[in-house]
């Protein structure tokens, strides 16, 4: 939340630049989440109605209309997205199974000296299996990262938004 609205602009025109603190490339994240599976890029632009429905379900604004999406043959999806950590963007990837449940979350990069804790595997593992029926809320079914509250809240909100996005526009 602590960011100028124009910082959300890169989400709309996401090109995933190679930050210095890049931990995984998109290809690496795809190999980790979908080993041996061929993913097909599928450009998708959300309609206004879809974006509003996602906002309604997830309870957070949809910052951009362009979805960076790859599909697996079985209907599963791989989505690359950004959220604001404390002030700057955190790039992450979400793997989602055909049943709409989270397969995996990987942090791709971030630019801040704060919030690196979200890379913690045990923390990210909490998202696995979460679906549209789960709250996916910090302090509710997702434990906080003490000292990185903003980053963990924003990644949690991002995952919740992408779960809704899958249900509304991808499935």
């Amino acid at each position: 939340m602590r960011a100028a609205p124009w910082l959300l602009a890169p989400v709309a025109a996401l090109s995933m630049p190679a930050y210095a603190t890049s931990y995984l490339t998109i290809e690496e994240a795809q190999r980790i989440m979908f080993p041996g599976t061929t993913l097909t890029p599928a450009a998708l632009t959300l309609t206004e109605a879809q974006a509003r429905e996602i906002e309604r379900r997830a309870g957070v604004p949809v910052p951009g209309r362009t979805l960076h999406l790859w599909r697996a043959p079985d209907g599963a999806a791989f989505i690359v997205d950004e959220v604001i950590g404390k002030h700057e963007a955190i790039g992450y990837a979400l793997g989602i199974n055909a049943d709409g449940r989270v397969r995996q979350v990987e942090i791709l990069d971030y630019r801040e000296a704060y919030g690196w804790e979200v890379r913690n595997e045990k923390w990210r593992r909490q998202f696995i299996g979460k679906g549209a029926a789960d709250p996916v809320l910090l302090d509710r079914d997702i434990r906080n990262l003490s000292g990185a509250t903003l980053s963990s809240r924003h990644v949690t909100e991002g995952v919740r938004r992408l779960i809704a996005t899958y249900a509304v526009a991808v499935k």
Binding site: R2, A3, A4, W6, A9, A51, R65, H87
Partner: peptide
Amino acid sequence: AAAPVAAGTSAAGFEKLSLW
């Protein structure tokens, strides 16, 4: 929907700035 894109392209210098 159009606003963030427009802002991003017109305020190129500001994307490096954050306010809180």
